[in-house]
């Protein structure tokens, strides 16, 4: 059953906490092997959705399947197929890193798992800390152990809930390199992050949530190209005024430059020629593609 099933199938999931509708008929699926992004502002319902996938929260309505296994009625199989890196930096202060990982393996019924534990420790740069108590680790190190704990039972689906929050640049790059490798090996990755550039560079498809609803569910490239234009950023020489023809498409940017919205790359040459003909000198020119942050902000504003 699990071979041809979607990695995650989410159908009409609703969850209400008192007056707050945390999830409102959320439906989408994540295919096996995808690198999927789950984005949204604080309180959008991302963590509630992840908690529901993991069985920490029970849905009021709807259902979720992990590799074909229902997270409520077939929770044992569903949880064996899912590894979750929680958002909070939690740890058990009684144990060393290796003890923590051995215990976590045992919870999943795995006996001798040291070869895989050593491999994870190596890839996460934790080898030297294997016998160190969790209390003695830095925040970044603890975050890596959380990732290791989620991987210890070799789950085909890995959910990372803001894994790089408060993590330094070097660790972030190492972590993404490791997660990319896992994805290349066939693991399905679901990522929530506030670093939109990370989602843009890593995720093939993205769901955007707001107030418990799915606002968008598209490939990252479709999302970026759907309705957003290129922007030509110009620094005009000597305070020269823009020709009248540009007033409808130009606006001043915060750093003193002029931003001109273009429909496509073909317009760049024509725009610059028109400025040259009007005698407008330029000190600086930059062509900027829309990024996920532009899309995100625009969509959230539209939905407000």
């Amino acid at each position: 059953m699990s071979d041809s099933s979607p990695a995650l199938l989410i159908e009409g999931v609703c969850k209400r906490y008192a007056s707050l509708q945390a999830l409102d008929h959320v439906s989408f699926e994540v295919r096996q092997g995808e690198f999927f992004g789950l984005l949204g502002p604080n309180g959008a319902g991302k963590t509630t959705l992840i908690s529901t996938m993991a069985g920490l929260t029970r849905p009021d309505d709807g259902r979720i399947r992990v590799m074909g296994h229902d997270v409520v009625s077939d929770y044992r199989a569903a949880r064996r197929n899912l590894g979750v890196v929680p958002q909070e930096l939690v740890f058990d202060p009684f144990f060393t890193v290796r003890e923590t990982l051995r215990i976590q393996s045992g919870y999943f019924g795995m006996g001798r798992n040291d070869a895989w534990i050593d491999e994870i420790l190596h890839h996460l740069d934790l080898g030297a800390k294997a016998d160190v108590n969790m209390r003695a680790l830095s925040g970044g190190m603890k975050r890596r152990v959380l990732v290791a704990q989620a991987l210890v039972h070799r789950p085909p689906v890995i959910v990372l809930d803001e894994p790089t929050a408060g993590v330094d640049v070097e660790l972030r790059q190492n972590l993404w390199a490791f997660v990319r490798r896992l994805n290349e090996q066939g693991h399905t990755i679901v990522l929530t992050t506030h670093y939109l550039e990370e989602a843009e560079s890593l995720c093939g498809r993205i769901a955007m949530l707001k107030q418990g609803r799915v606002l968008a569910l598209e490939t990252t490239s479709d999302l970026l190209s759907r309705r957003f234009q290129l922007t030509l950023l110009l620094r005009l020489r000597g305070g020269v005024a823009l020709p009248q023809a540009f007033h409808a498409v130009a606006k001043a940017s915060a750093d003193g430059r002029v931003a001109i919205a273009l429909d496509g790359a073909d317009d760049v040459a024509a725009c610059l020629a028109q400025l040259h003909a009007a005698g407008v000198g330029l000190d600086d020119v930059e062509l900027r593609r829309p990024d996920l942050e532009d899309v995100f902000i625009a969509m959230m504003q539209e939905a407000a």
Partner: peptide
């Protein structure tokens, strides 16, 4: 959470 996430 480390116990609750498992098949126990």
């Amino acid at each position: 959470v480390f116990v609750l996430l498992t098949p126990i």
